[in-house]
């Protein structure tokens, strides 16, 4: 496979983590402008773990996801009783605080004779774990997709459990959910926590595949894009946000068909698409149709 294709595929995979993160919160009925914060936290923490503490990659990724999830849970505790624009703005405020904190964050140490570590606004460079361990771009792309598939599989399983249903119920009508015996706050915190961890995992991968991360990598643009991907692709299934990423990065950014006019085309397209399908291409109705068709097809085979 040629290098360009691998890079594009890896990008699609990594951004999918943030899109899934925003999607999980969307399911719980909350609009977050700030999932990029947890992406950033995961990137810095995982990077520090391999570079400064010489941890193995797997452990570093787990730590990044864990810290990001914990941070998201804590932020959730104080913000999740807000809703609508209040919640959206609180998440954005937190993400911007984290981004500026990263601009101020300097933690330099001498590792193997070279000074390295996060260096304020210049970001965190030389995260060379993959190089140092002879992992090729193709192999690292495989790692990204293996983890993405694992996250997706977990989401699919959760969707079939009562917890997953509760998530959708809370998202659709929190009051009705409460009357039906669901502890809305608890469900939302669980959602925020897992959304933070998923974004953190993506961030850890990003830092290692690109060998650097800078505060600019997780500004508001990443957060709002992540939110948009779910709505474009559809909120009926976890594949929706992936479809959104695929359309934007895979089809438009990478094919260079509309070079220089990509956003003019894409922006208008998205607006029109949302008018026709306000919950995205693969929305609940589409998914329910597909399920019914599958069931009928299976019965016909009997």
């Amino acid at each position: 496979m040629d290098g360009f294709l691998i890079t594009v595929l890896s990008n699609i995979g990594m951004i999918s983590f943030v899109a899934l993160s925003a999607y999980i919160l969307l399911l719980s009925g909350q609009i977050s402008f700030g999932q990029q914060a947890y992406f950033g936290i995961g990137a810095y923490v995982a990077g520090i773990a391999t570079v400064m503490w010489s941890w193995p990659l797997a452990a570093a990724l787990v730590l990044g996801a864990f810290v990001a999830g914990a941070a998201a849970g804590l932020v959730g505790l104080v913000t999740l009783r807000l809703s609508g624009i209040y919640f959206a703005m609180a998440t954005l405020a937190f993400a911007e605080i984290m981004r500026i904190a990263a601009e101020l964050f300097v933690y330099r140490r001498e590792i193997g004779g070279i000074e390295t570590g996060p260096d304020g606004i210049d970001g965190f460079r030389d995260i060379r774990y993959l190089f140092a361990n002879d992992i090729s771009p193709f192999q690292s792309c495989l790692i990204v997709y293996a983890l993405l598939v694992a996250v997706l599989a977990t989401l699919f399983i959760v969707e079939r459990t009562r917890g997953g249903r509760m998530l959708r119920q809370v998202g659709e009508d929190p009051l009705l959910a409460e009357v039906n015996g669901i502890d809305v706050m608890r469900v939302r915190i669980a959602a925020a926590l897992s959304a933070g961890a998923v974004a953190g995992l993506g961030g850890g991968l990003y830092a290692h595949l690109l060998t650097y991360v800078e505060p600019r990598s997780f500004d508001i643009m990443l957060g709002v894009h992540a939110l948009a991907y779910g709505l474009i692709g559809g909120l009926g299934t976890a594949l929706g946000p992936l479809l959104g990423v695929l359309i934007d990065i895979g089809l438009l950014e990478s094919t260079r068909v509309f070079r220089g006019y990509r956003m003019i085309v894409f922006g208008g397209l998205v607006a029109v698409l949302l008018i026709v399908r306000p919950r995205g291409l693969l929305d609940e109705v589409a998914i329910s149709r597909i399920r019914q068709a599958l069931r009928r097809w299976r019965h016909a085979g009997d």
Binding site: R262, G267, G268, L269, I275
Partner: peptide, 24 residues
């Protein structure tokens, strides 16, 4: 074009136009 039930879609559409207008 968006009804009351599609506030999020409406907001995301405005984000899409943000990108569009900036590029223009």
């Amino acid at each position: 074009p968006f009804g009351e039930g599609a506030r999020t879609a409406s907001m995301v559409a405005s984000f899409a136009l943000w990108m569009q207008i900036e590029e223009a």
